[in-house]
């Protein structure tokens, strides 16, 4: 038996290419400069928060259902009525959870670390919405789904939180974060690659900073 174990975390998504262990996660180091890119963002910390939809925590976040904003390096997503998803840097789930609990004392709030239970990927490029519109029926126009918009819908028949996050994508291009339950992550990743084939999509490994942005 080893005296000390060296646990390695692995994403639900397998991205081809050379691999290395970064921050305790075995990830693909593949980078792409293709016009449309799909990157695995699963190592980011993900925290699910439940509280009164219109309560003190909602006010403290300043985020309601269907919208999102970055706050102190954490992307706060209003993923459902009275339900938030917080995305932050790798390994920060406990810290985020602690901060949330400190925001409002006394209210009934549940905070669950779902980092390992969910898959997260980012679709970036000028054709991102065209590719996404092949597997998702929601109107992705700026009028309906502007920067910061968040919705939960069927993407290739998988229940998925979709967040329009151009700011996090870098390079001023349209960018979407897609968040689904972990065991379907590889399937969703494959479906998005299939949908993006006509636009020359390429997969790439993580490579994200602590704000969830590239």
């Amino acid at each position: 038996m080893p005296d000390t174990w060296a646990p390695v975390a692995r994403s639900a998504i397998t991205v081809p290419g050379p691999r290395s262990v970064v921050d305790g996660w075995e990830v693909s180091t593949r980078r792409s400069s293709a016009a449309l890119r799909l990157s695995d963002a699963s190592p980011l910390a993900k925290v699910s928060v439940r509280a009164d939809a219109d309560g003190a925590l909602a006010d403290a976040f300043g985020v309601r259902f269907r919208s999102s904003r970055r706050r102190d390096g954490v992307l706060v997503i209003g993923s459902g009525p009275g339900e938030w998803l917080l995305v932050g840097g790798v390994g920060t789930a406990h810290q985020i959870a602690g901060q949330v609990c400190g925001l409002v004392a006394g209210d009934f709030v549940s905070v669950v670390d779902v980092t390992h239970g969910r898959a997260l990927m980012r679709l970036t490029g000028s054709d991102a919405s065209r590719a996404l519109s092949k597997v998702c029926a929601v109107d992705l126009s700026d009028a309906v789904t502007p920067e910061g918009a968040a919705f939960r819908s069927s993407v290739a028949k998988v229940t998925t939180d979709v967040i329009r996050d151009d700011a996090g994508g870098g390079a001023g291009e349209p960018s979407y974060l897609l968040h689904c339950e972990r065991s379907s992550g590889q399937y969703l990743f494959k479906c998005l690659l299939d949908a993006g084939k006509e636009f020359g999509i390429e997969p790439e490994g993580p490579g994200l900073d602590s704000t969830g942005a590239r």
Binding site: S48, R50, F108, S110, V112, V114, G117, R118, E181
Partner: peptide, 12 residues
């Protein structure tokens, strides 16, 4: 009732 249910099937 003050109960929150979070599905964690694949969190573990």
């Amino acid at each position: 009732w003050r109960v929150h249910v979070t599905p964690v099937t694949t969190a573990y």
